[in-house]
């Protein structure tokens, strides 16, 4: 990796804003559930719902800072727990997708041949499928869809871009003189991959991985909004959007809170990703 990357990154204000937002989102995901003032699934039907069945607003009842959701549950606690779920899904799926994409990209690019052709046609195939439709189809077919299924779906459908880029970079790297030298010295393929190729493709992996988190947060939200995400009564930001949309006229805040969280987190990851890209690859 390029040692000057950090210097360049430090000078980039946008990237720093992104880092701050990401740190904040991650912190709220990690610490949020323990900070939540109430059980996120407890329905306060008597105190937090008015006579018309509408939830009470922020501070209508003193210890409910952001008021209630559609079923009289504490909105703040749900946001904190929901964020943890959304972030966990996005991070796990990204980790999986990055491992898979790197593995396939590096092997394809390094060994070429039939293996490469097969993998790249698979990538073409996956890229030609409409992501959301496919995710919905899988979610419907699986008999017992839990969070792990969601993570798997997201990961299996999103490693392709990364694999492509890593392969392209590997193709470049394998022709460079130090790889030739290593080969001439009799280094094994595995060692060349680990010592020379991987460190040199790490830049794009980090960059793409960061933006992938942002994309997956959006996809998780979209799936949850369609009712295919987390199971009730649990919350994620996407499912909160869906539940809130019923009361868009009288309680638009139920849409705005989770939407704001999603926007800020995704924005943060994208800014960070851009900043990292500029840091690792300053040429334009």
């Amino acid at each position: 990796m390029d040692p000057r990357a950090w210097t360049r990154f430090r000078k980039n204000k946008g990237a720093f804003l992104g880092l701050a937002l990401v740190a904040l989102a991650t912190l709220s995901a990690v610490a949020g559930p323990s900070l939540a003032p109430h059980d996120p699934n407890e329905q306060f039907r008597d105190t937090l719902i008015d006579g018309r069945g509408l939830p009470k607003g922020p501070l209508a009842v003193p210890d409910h800072l952001l008021g209630a959701d559609t079923l009289g549950r504490d909105e703040l606690s749900r946001l904190l727990h929901g964020g943890a779920v959304t972030m966990l899904v996005a991070f796990l799926a990204t980790a999986l997708a990055v491992s898979l994409g790197t593995l396939i990209g590096v092997t394809s690019g390094f060994f070429r041949g039939a293996l490469d052709a097969t993998f790249m046609r698979l990538v073409d195939l996956l890229l030609s499928l409409p992501f959301l439709l496919l995710a919905i189809a899988i979610k419907r077919v699986v008999a017992d869809p839990g969070l792990e299924v969601l993570v798997l779906i997201l990961a299996l459908l999103s490693w392709t871009t990364l694999a492509r880029v890593v392969r392209a970079k590997t193709l470049q790297v394998r022709e460079l003189e130090y790889v030739l030298a290593a080969r001439a010295l009799g280094m094994s393929n595995a060692r060349i991959l680990l010592r020379h190729v991987l460190p040199n493709v790490a830049g794009p992996i980090i960059v793409l991985g960061t933006t992938l988190v942002a994309q997956l947060i959006l996809f998780e939200s979209a799936l949850s909004f369609l009712g295919l995400g987390v199971e009730p009564p649990n919350a994620s930001w996407g499912s909160m959007l869906r539940e809130g949309s019923e009361l868009i006229d009288s309680a638009p805040r139920l849409l705005l809170y989770p939407a704001a969280f999603i926007v800020m987190t995704v924005f943060g990851f994208n800014l960070l990703g851009e900043g990292l890209r500029d840091a690792f690859d300053p040429k334009e």
Binding site: L127, R164, Q215
Partner: peptide, 24 residues
Amino acid sequence: MPSTRRNEADLSARPGAHEAHAAR
């Protein structure tokens, strides 16, 4: 998923871009 084209173009090595670097 969004296209990969932009990333590939940016990440591929293109020597000779150093002249305008400072201004950029």
